[in-house]
Write a protein that binds this DNA or RNA. Structure first.
Lengths: 195, 195
DNA sequence: AGCGATACATACCGACGGTACGTGAAAAGT
DNA sequence: ACTTTTCACGTACCGTCGGTATGTATCGCT
């Protein structure tokens, strides 16, 4: 049991976000009641509503952490690469791996757009990961690696492609699905290159 | 007022699916109560539960019709083209146009995966439209227009790209978003071509 | 020590999905 | 033609769930 109020607050919120993440990932937002979440977290509904304004807001907090985790893994993979092009391909592969995990799959890719609406989901996705994709593509267009073209539509196309691919990989019983998708995606990115 | 029972059944189910489509498209599955649907359709909950086993099953019926409408538009556009390659590009453009409409956007692309789960959504999407994409790509690989490669991952990537792009187009206040996306997608498809 | 703010816990409410049961008209059987 | 069955509902009701109002113990500050 933590002593100070700040610690107590931190512990309670963390427990709620932890259990929320676990349960939402397992059975989906709509199928999980607040009663079960607070019970699993060892608190009551009073505690939940003291820290979060609604079930939706708890979900927001859960989503933020899931997106943050995915973004960290992508950033780590990209930072290990020397140039923009390999940063892009390595980042894409890391994104496929990270977002086909249980939590990211259900929470970030399936439930989030329906619960928060597409506009808000897109804004959060943009801030967490799509922005890096956009920057990488813009840099590649800038240095002539990719023919000059508007990047915004391209970012949406590639982002959507990877999101859907991650869902497919996660569901697939074929262990080679990740590699097959990664190869197809890399081929697609290479096809974009200027000669 | 229809006389026969079959006509009555048909009229009631159609009214429920019509109003369900309208309301789900406007405010989303979770935000619409059955009371409002049956009220708009001019029937009662008894009628709804006589024809549909649950709110979810009504949504299934709604989704089936929305997907069918989109598939019809895509098929019509593709059938007007002479060869496989232009059928593919024309079909993709038709898909972007059709699925960025109000009903398809919210029902087919946002709510459906969350309500029915990704597996069921994918199965329905496959049957309605992704199958045609797969056939077109397979044909193009077959005749050597596209380098030999597994089509399954490519279908998922392109399908996801188009779904996300449709959502972006629908939300965008830029009237040129559709054309810009179509150009980017066409460029991407062309980049796939064997030399 | 006293006092306000904070971090809860408890009791309760309205809405919503779903069910049980009743009813009247069409269809089927004789 | 008359009875019987089935169908297409309508009505009343129930349990659950998200959300709220209110009470209370503890912490931190003066």
């Amino acid at each position: 049991m933590p002593r100070t109020k700040a610690q107590q607050r931190e512990a309670t919120m963390r427990a709620l976000v932890d259990e929320g993440t676990r349960l939402f990932a397992e059975r989906g937002y709509a199928a999980v009641g607040l009663a079960e979440i607070v019970r699993s977290a060892g608190v009551t509904k009073g505690a939940l509503y003291h820290h979060f304004g609604s079930k939706e807001e708890l979900f927001r907090a859960v989503l933020r952490r899931v997106q943050s985790d995915v973004a960290d893994q992508v950033a780590a993979a990209a930072d290990a690469e020397p140039d923009t092009w390999t940063q892009l391909t390595a980042g894409c592969r890391a994104f496929l791996t990270a977002s086909s995990g249980r939590s990211a799959r259900r929470i970030m890719l399936i439930d989030a757009p329906a619960v928060l609406g597409w506009n808000e989901w897109r804004a959060m996705d943009e801030a967490a990961s799509a922005r890096h994709l956009e920057e990488a593509l813009a840099a590649l267009v800038e240095d002539g690696s990719i023919p000059d073209q508007p990047v915004a539509p391209l970012v949406r196309l590639l982002s959507g492609a990877m999101n859907e691919a991650a869902l497919w990989i996660a569901q697939s019983d074929d262990p080679g699905a990740l590699d097959a998708t990664d190869r197809a995606l890399t081929r697609l990115l290479h096809a974009l290159r200027a000669d």
